[in-house]
Computed example of a mutant assay.
Amino acid sequence: MDKLDRVMTLYRELNNRRYPVSRKQLEQKLECKGVTVKRAIGTLRDYFGVPVIYLRDQNGYVIDRAAGEHEIPGLWLNPEEIHALLVADSLLSNLEPGLVRAETGPFRQRLRNLMARIGGGEQHFDRIRLLSMGRRREQSRWFPRIAQAVLQRQRLRIGYHARSDDSASQREVSPQRLTHYRDNWYLDAWCHQREDLRTFSLDCIETAETLDRPALDMDNETLDRHYATAYGIFAGEPDKVAVLHFTAHRARWVANEIWHPQQTGYQLADGCYELRLPYRRHEELLGDILKYGADVEVMEPPSLREAVRRELERMTKKHEKSSHRISD
């Protein structure tokens, strides 16, 4: 029985008894010695504020009912569970610094105090870190409002600046899901202007107003079919399958990677690795292919192979020009 379980058992034992309980009885119930019983009583009294008193004439401990009702929290956690919650809080805070830090601050401090009380010592949770690659500097200040609209199923009117064509627009949307993808947040929503599902990058949302109208609800199957079947952040049902061959050296890593939930892959006779995955638009997939350089070859479809070839050709020309400028 760990320390927190012991305190919980002690509270239940005293709270359910109408008469004082002797130290001997508590030692048997808590499976410990008298000094440990006294320590558990001290924790129950000092940390949880339960007025435990000792009645010398009856040789037992009791909760002082005259001091009023003293109900301790109904959520009981052992040290391992507290550790897990603090680690989860650290990871969540690292997803977007400042996003939930203030809201979870009091709860986090109570967990740390509880760990200290039960002998957990100083915990170095800053030793857990997430390295962000590609997180945009400005995440939306409207995140809390947008998240609330998603959960409460309310419509939003948003001012959106599209980077693709540098245009600004006002949209009325029915939020469906918040998505955290490659260190950035996105809103999946039904756009009432376009009458279709759209994905909005939160850092491009310049204004957000909650409307007094219920959001249009869409079932999970429809949302998954639209958002989760093609490759990457681009939505829509896939209409092509990419076939990639990785060198035997690179296969040591790629064979254990998940690029897409519906991917298939297997080792080839020469030690290379074949990866097949569905996609609709090639822009994001193209970038992921190029980062492997000569360790990957696109086998199918021809359109994707040609897109890689053209991009490599443009890169080569650009770097040849750059080298001339540097040499000059």
Rank of each mutant, 00 (worst) to 15 (best):
I72W: 10
E13K: 04
E274F: 06
M218F: 11
V7S: 11
E138F: 10
F143G: 07
K240Q: 15
R45F: 00
A66H: 05
V37T: 12
N78M: 05
W185N: 00
G34V: 12
I205H: 13
L304P: 01
K240L: 07
K318D: 02
M115P: 02
G236R: 05
E206D: 05
D89C: 10
R250N: 07
R276Q: 15
R101D: 09
H282L: 07
A294P: 09
D64V: 06
D196E: 08
N59D: 15
S201R: 14
L44Y: 05
E320P: 03
T104G: 07
A228N: 09
D2W: 10
G98F: 04
E313G: 11
E300T: 14
G134M: 15
R309I: 06
G159A: 12
E320L: 11
V254I: 15
K240T: 08
V308N: 14
R65D: 01
G236H: 05
E69D: 04
S22T: 15
I326G: 01
N184T: 10
T264N: 07
S303P: 02
D126I: 12
R17Q: 11
A189T: 15
N59T: 12
H70R: 09
K318P: 01
D239L: 04
H124Y: 02
R194W: 01
T36P: 05
F125N: 00
Q28F: 03
F125E: 00
R213N: 02
G119N: 08
K321M: 06
L131K: 01
S169G: 08
G293Y: 08
D126H: 15
L202P: 03
I158Q: 01
F200A: 12
R117H: 03
E311W: 00
E206C: 07
K317L: 06
R163W: 05
E71A: 09
A168C: 15
G105S: 05
E172Y: 04
R135H: 01
A242P: 08
I82R: 10
R56Q: 12
E195D: 06
A251N: 01
M299W: 14
E311T: 04
H319P: 03
L275E: 11
A255Y: 05
K321H: 05
D165Q: 14
A269R: 10
V52Y: 03
C191G: 02
